[in-house]
Design a protein around this nucleic acid. Structure first.
Lengths: 143, 143
DNA sequence: ACTGCAAAGTTAGCCTTGCTAATTGGCGTA
DNA sequence: TACGCCAATTAGCAAGGCTAACTTTGCAGT
């Protein structure tokens, strides 16, 4: 395969990523949650109760940074923490019932820019193709 | 098409984007240029001399922010500015010959994390599929 | 020619996000 | 029981991009 081609696509990937990121940031204030908050919510919904440190590892982020995100989510009633049954150092965080319901119902979808852009801007075929590319990128990240 | 499916893919898109972004940031110091700087360099290489305001528009960014990026690139000798021949308000920025050569030779590819990840982590088919998805995302951004 | 407004760019100050360093308190093993 | 490890928190910092306000230049209407 052509190295030139890889450079071209990487250029475009970088440009699109930065553009989407800035757009998410710009639309942020009107959205219910920030990107990082949504990542945490999705993680808790998919994998159940987690500690701050575990969430930080999943997101390739420092525990201190994740701690700040969790603190914000707690203050607005999205997550609650309970002490680990046997290990007093740990706190296990879960979505509140209300937030879990909202997530499962996809209720925040309408208030989040990326969700509505994806659902109204991409065809069914484009959606599946994007999903395959994302899977490839994820594997790329793991190396 | 399923709205649920769109939500799933958007979730994954957001997660992958934030992961790549953090990774680029983390690898940044060892890279030659930041993501924003590379975006500007690619733009100048593809579309020729531009003003700060034009570059800012292309990148969906404020002129003040782009001004700072250009100032940095000028200080390290990557771009040079010259007055617009007829409009005294504008300054036209171009890549220095050395930088243009480097860009065309893809010489910075080896020193940039994203380039090397893409070229070694994706197959030729995955590369083309990704390129199609990026085109779809770009159209999505323009709405 | 003169007045007045638009457009390019700059300076100053702020906010957000994630980082490192250092501390506290619980855990577990020699 | 003492010592080192691990979860979490607090404090301070840097990068990136934002708004607000100002200067200079160009242009259009009278």
């Amino acid at each position: 395969m052509s190295r030139e081609r890889a450079i071209e696509v990487a250029d475009e990937l970088r440009a699109v990523i930065t553009a989407i990121r800035r757009r998410m940031q710009a639309e942020g204030p009107t959205d219910a949650y920030t990107a990082s908050q949504l990542n945490v919510i999705a993680n808790l919904a998919k994998h159940g109760p987690s500690t701050v440190t575990l969430l930080a590892n999943v997101e390739s982020m420092r525990p201190q940074s994740m701690g700040a995100i969790i603190a914000t989510l707690e203050s607005i009633g999205v997550v609650t923490g309970s002490p680990h049954p046997t290990d007093g150092r740990q706190t296990l965080w879960t979505l509140t019932p209300k937030s879990a319901d909202e997530y499962n119902a996809g209720r925040d979808a309408r208030s989040n820019w990326l969700y509505s852009a994806v659902s109204t801007g991409l065809s069914s075929e484009q959606l599946e193709e994007l999903d395959r590319s994302l899977a490839a990128l994820r594997r790329m990240l793991e190396k």
